[in-house]
Nucleic acid binder design. Structure first.
Length: 602
RNA sequence: UGCCUGGUGGUGUAAUGGUAGCACAGCAGAUUCUGACUCUGCUUGUCUAGGUUCGAGUCCUAGCCGGGCAGCCA
């Protein structure tokens, strides 16, 4: 049995929120044949914990309603995007939803693009999705892929021509600066572009020539013709297409005009048959535009609708791709997957189990109110998962040597150690007690503070799973530094021996000095020193200089064969996992996921 | 001085006109071969002012405070 297998697979309890209530209402009304949601990241950075909330919501709605959720790359801006991000995002989404909502993940045949069809006597496009029930078999054959907005460039272009024909879009020759000036301000109406009243024929000709590459970058745009005096600035003839003579990472080199978000997103939703397009609050003011575009095209199938919720904010972390990219570029961290990063890949490498992440983002709820979630909520859930699933191991991070003077050199006493006391029927392993052992230097005090339970001059302490020892002598070198502690072991107090029930106040962890393995252990702490680094004038100035401490630790030998997807509790210290990137058999590297709760130290 | 939107303990969230509840945090205690886990108890809340109603966190009016919106980013 692996420690991973007992992890609960679903966030509990079944969540309820205003969006799910709405979906439930639509299901009751039988408004849609099937509930289809989507998770639409732009491949311009790694996914972070804020995205996890969106993933959990969108896939959660799908799985709770026997629906489907499409992973769709919103890749309409080739100058900022890269396949590196497509790959990392795909990996992260699959890891997060594995065993929970992977059966709802929508796929399409590799390379498929929407094909023209007729629906209710109207022209339309159809993108055949692969039956989610068949996905497992398709996955292995590499015959399916997620969705890409860039696969819709052809139909999007056709829809743009249609908009022009309906007199709802025009080609504008204003420069970026002029466009800005004409737009006005929130409390000041804009002015009509001098190109606003071009004939349909001229617009059609100009737009086709834009597409053919006749004009340089920025020379012309396609704009929706709505209302330059609208109090909603997003309705002041928003741009639909811009000219960019660059190749696209997914679509190739066939295009030099690229659609903008507002135009591409609603139509992508429509093409995929999305019923509920769920996004964050900053898009609320875009909703009228989302609806305007779809309604302007007289489309034959049911239209998707947009619903907004407040994004996740977590104390002491940043949830901004731009700022996270800065941390990477400024080498504050080692990369997007640095275990201190709030990215999904960083959290995974740190040792956060996917079910814990899901439970956390489900537990914060879905509302429209801005909020900052305390780090303790996240930490509590992570500890709960790890406490239930992680095998216990003995490890000493900052060793100090003990000599048990009444145990002969060369003797090995095998002790039974419990793997996880939380298991219904706990299993055990053997740990070796020898004449020389290491204990944590924090577990010894020559001059102990009040209520100190651990080893002190003349005091007794239990070595966990072994026996009670008494400190007889402190040995120092010429400089006064402590080199070893000489103790007597009371072997009659060993587990199973007559005096095993004898109580001492302190029990400490330890590792045999001869039967152990060395490891580099990375002790991580929060990356920022303030609860809201995003509110700082310069967030780089509040980076925690002590966010990483590296020690060479002594581990019990069972840890020598650990793998990166296992989680361990180093007893009395915290939860640790093997580093997936830097650990090698001859140089083990462990990451501290999180400490144990410590009501004594703080 | 424009438009959109939101305000419930320290934090997050529930209560859909009828006992303000839950979780986390905090405090106190019990237990403990992990100062962990577990268990027990406690503290703390409806932004303000009016109104409707037998009854308002919920409905109405006004105000106060917060967030978002003026990329050829998403």
């Amino acid at each position: 049995m692996s420690a991973e297998n007992t992890s609960p697979a679903t966030p509990t309890p079944a969540p309820s929120d205003f969006i799910r209530d709405l979906v439930a209402q639509h299901v009751a009304e039988q408004r849609y044949a099937k509930i289809v949601t989507r998770f639409p990241p732009e491949p311009n950075g790694y996914l972070h914990i804020g995205h996890a909330k969106s993933i959990c919501l969108n896939f959660g709605i799908a799985r709770e309603n026997s629906g489907q959720c499409n992973l769709r790359f919103d890749d309409t801006n080739p100058v900022k995007e890269d396949v590196e991000y497509v790959d990392s995002i795909t990996t992260d989404v699959k890891w997060l939803i594995d065993g929970w909502a992977d059966h709802c993940l929508g796929f399409k045949a590799k390379g498929a693009t929407p094909a023209p069809q007729t629906v209710n006597g109207k022209p339309d496009f159809h993108l055949p999705a692969v039956d989610p029930a068949q996905i497992k078999s398709h996955l292995s054959g590499d015959k399916v892929e997620p969705f890409f907005a860039s696969d819709y460039f052809a139909p999007l272009y056709d829809y743009a021509l249609e908009l022009i024909k309906r007199g709802k879009a025009y080609v504008c020759d204003l420069t970026p600066k002029e466009t800005d000036e004409y737009r006005g301000a929130p409390d000041k109406p804009g002015r009509n572009s001098p190109y606003r009243d071009r004939s349909i024929e001229e617009n059609l000709d100009l737009f086709k020539r834009m597409r053919a590459g006749e004009f340089p970058d920025g020379a012309r745009t396609l704009r929706a013709k709505i209302d330059m005096a609208s109090p909603n600035v997003w309705l002041r003839d928003p741009l639909l297409y811009r000219i960019r003579h660059v190749a696209h990472h997914h679509a190739g080199s066939g295009w030099c005009i690229y659609p903008l978000y507002d135009y591409a997103h609603c139509l992508s939703d429509y093409l995929e048959g999305i019923t509920h397009s769920v996004c964050t609050l900053e898009f609320e003011v875009h909703r009228p535009l989302y609806d305007w575009i779809l309604e302007s095209l007289d489309l034959p199938r049911p239209l998707p609708h947009q619903y907004e919720f407040a994004k996740l904010n977590l104390a002491y972390t940043l949830v901004s791709k731009r700022k996270l990219l800065t941390l990477v570029n400024e080498k504050v961290v080692t990369g997007w997957d640095d275990p201190r990063m709030p990215t999904i890949s960083g959290l995974r490498r740190r040792g956060i189990p996917a079910p814990a992440l899901l439970e956390f983002v489900a537990s914060v709820g879905v509302t429209k109110a801005d909020s900052v979630t305390e780090a303790a909520v996240f930490e509590n859930i992570v500890r709960n998962h790890l406490n239930a699933t992680a095998f216990r191991r003995l490890a000493v991070l900052k060793p100090i040597k003990i000599v048990l003077t009444n145990i002969p050199a060369g003797e090995v006493i095998l002790c039974d150690a419990t793997n996880n006391p939380q298991d219904e029927t706990p299993t055990t392993r053997k740990v070796s007690l020898t004449r020389e052992v290491f204990i944590e230097s924090d577990d010894f005090a020559e001059v102990p503070p009040p209520k100190y339970f651990r080893l002190k001059p003349g005091g007794e302490v239990r070595l966990k799973y072994a026996c009670i020892i008494k400190l007889d002598e402190i040995v120092k070198d010429a400089s006064g530094a402590i080199t070893e502690l000489r103790c007597t072991a009371d072997l009659t107090t060993r587990t199973g021996q007559p005096n095993s029930d004898r109580k001492v106040k302190g029990t400490i962890h330890w590792v045999s000095a001869v039967r152990c393995v060395d490891a580099e252990v990375r002790l991580y702490d929060r990356l920022f020193t303030v609860p809201e680094p995003a509110a700082e004038e310069d967030f780089l100035k509040v980076v925690n200089p002590k966010s990483l401490e590296v020690v060479t630790a002594k581990l019990e030998v069972a840890l020598g064969t650990a793998t990166p997807n296992e989680h361990f509790q180093f007893e009395r210290l915290g939860y640790f996992t093997l580093d997936s990137k830097d650990s090698r058999p001859d140089h083990l590297v462990f990451n501290r996921t999180i400490t144990l709760r410590d009501t004594w130290a703080k």
